[in-house]
Design a protein around this nucleic acid. Sequence first.
DNA 1: GATAGGCCAACCCTTACATCA
DNA 2: GATGATGTAAGGGTTGGCCTA
Length: 315
Amino acid sequence: MGEKNDGLRLSLSLGCGDEEKQQKQKNMNSQSPSQPLPLSLMRTSFPFMQQQNIQQQIQHKSSFLADVFPSSSERNAGEPRLFLRGIDVNQPATVIDCDEEVMVSSPISTVSSGSGKRSEREENEADRGSSSLEDDGGEAVRKKLRLSKEQAAVLEETFKEHNTLNPKQKLALAKQLNLRPRQVEVWFQNRRARTKLKQTEVDCEYLKRCCENLTEENRRLQKEVNELRALKLSPQFYMNMNPPTTLTMCPQCERVAVSSSSSSSAAASTSIAATSSGITHQQNTLTASNQRSMPLNPWTAIFRNQSLDVHQPRS
DNA sequence: GATAGGCCAACCCTTACATCA
DNA sequence: GATGATGTAAGGGTTGGCCTA
């Protein structure tokens, strides 16, 4: 369930909120692991996963994924099978009876407390057992569990395949990693948030570039308008121009048109030029919009379409 | 069939802690 | 060693869909 394709949502939501809902519903109902990975996720890089030891874990994990997320048809129909492969299931999992879920504390994850390097703490605290809340002198202190690199790598790899988990997958993954289901859930949630943030930054950059392009285009058009105005005001403009015999108005677009083919001036409006050549309204529209080569920019394309709409026959 | 209430999963915002420069 | 920036695990509130009475 959930907000799927987080990454693309921002850009897509510029025009399609329904799609988001549909996607949400789809995920909610099926949690199909075979759904395509959002582009944004595919773009995401995971540099730390290049480390060699992590890669070994990943190889381990691939068999795990085959179990929990069976491929193709098996995925959809299958219950996540129990598995004994992957990360260190031999470590005893401490069952903590303090939630509606079976809370399995992680002997792998690190409870970071105080100062000191991570590796040292891992050694010191690995056999301590862990809970997110420890009683420190009668006062509950929130200790932060730090997931091990191996756990993070497996979670990351899983996330690359499915950015959401259904409850069974969550449980299986939690068991696999000796984590509480809640931890897996939170990790995925935070991971989705990070992905979304990254994609938002990318989208922001893109919109900034669009804005710059439009500003430049606007500046250019303003300059052109000024030049045309100056040309129009100059006496030579009238000297080179045959006076129009009659002015007519297009009944559909209500633009003034010259009925005689007289104007050869560059200053004449596109509409005038087009209509004076005797072409149809639609042709006029197209001609007008094609007069100037437009930048290859989706936003300007949108605006161009808008101008075409404005020019449509009125009902 | 319509509706209210409970449950659940996901999201968002925020906090607290860990780590690093 | 102190400190600020950054990363991230986790808490709590909200929302929307589903199910059931």
